[in-house]
């Protein structure tokens, strides 16, 4: 059961977005996220929505995969909506019940805030759905490279991400094994309240920690044996390169930003 957890939600397909360079995808996704904070009023959000629909179509990922990401943060969205709905003063009062008061501004803020969050999450899941973890790591490393001058450990961050991606499935498998071994000897992970369940995890975590330290030790030795000595003087087999696809995507995003800017001006 524990092995069902999939890491990174990459959806393999051949599409416009899949063929983009990871660097441009990361940069453009961030641009989109920032643009959401500039969008004003219904027309602004309308343009953002159209852009998202276009992006989803260009990714060839079924929309329900995008919505999956929303499920996890549903409570947060709900909470934001309620707080904005009841606690924003100003505007005409639409509804009042005891201390709870819903104003027109409150309603507007609540709706737009919810939309902003939803767009933000869908936008970033498009990035992770169309980019494999390994090329995402490569992209992050390449983008952070210029910052190495100000001591940002770009290579180290990327190496840590790679190793984490490699070992998470192994550790999950190991957890499963230890759990089964302990269940066979009468351990109970299922029943009891939250506190009791948490307590029953301690005998699980101790061997897991010990074995991961041992693995880390082994891995460090294996890396040194293969001449690993940090990022300096290191080359990469795969070089990232921008193609026409990236130029086209950048143009589309530029057009979107322009539309958003013009709308903000007019309104």
């Amino acid at each position: 059961m524990i092995r069902d957890i999939t890491l990174g939600q990459y959806y393999p397909a051949e599409s416009f977005l899949h063929s983009m360079d990871p660097r441009s995808k990361i940069v453009l996704t961030f641009t989109f996220i920032l643009s959401l904070f500039l969008a004003k009023g219904a027309p602004g959000y309308g343009v953002a929505f159209l852009f998202l629909v276009l992006a989803i179509r260009a990714s060839k990922v079924p929309p329900r995969f995008m919505l999956k990401g929303l499920k996890a943060v549903f409570m947060i969205i709900l909470l934001t909506v309620f707080i904005n709905l009841f606690l924003t003063p100003g505007g005409a009062v639409l509804f009042q019940w005891g201390v709870f008061k819903v104003t027109r501004t409150g309603l507007e803020t609540a709706v737009f805030m919810a939309l902003r969050l939803i767009f933000l999450i869908v936008g970033s899941s498009i990035l992770t759905l169309t980019t494999s973890p390994i090329s995402l790591t490569d992209g992050i490393e390449a983008l952070l490279k210029p910052w190495e001058k100000v001591k940002v450990p770009a290579h180290e961050i990327a190496m840590m991400m790679t190793i984490a991606l490699r070992f998470i499935p192994i550790l999950l498998e190991e957890t499963d094994k230890i759990m089964k071994a302990q269940m066979a000897r009468g351990a109970d992970f299922e029943s009891g309240g939250l506190v009791k369940k948490a307590q029953s995890l301690i005998p699980l975590l101790v061997p897991l920690f010990i074995s991961s330290f041992r693995r880390a030790d082994d891995l460090a030795l294996a890396m040194e044996a293969r001449c690993y000595r940090g990022g300096e003087g290191r080359t990469r087999m795969k070089r990232l390169s921008y193609t026409r696809v990236d130029v086209a995507a950048a143009l589309v995003v530029a057009a979107y930003l322009l539309a958003l800017g013009l709308l903000a001006r007019w309104l």
């Binding site: 973890p133 390994i134 790679t162 190793i163 991606l165 490699r166 192994i170 693995r215 082994d218 891995l219 294996a222 890396m223």
Partner: peptide, 9 residues
Amino acid sequence: NPDNQIIAT
């Protein structure tokens, strides 16, 4: 240990 010496995914 074959698992502990493979670095990449």
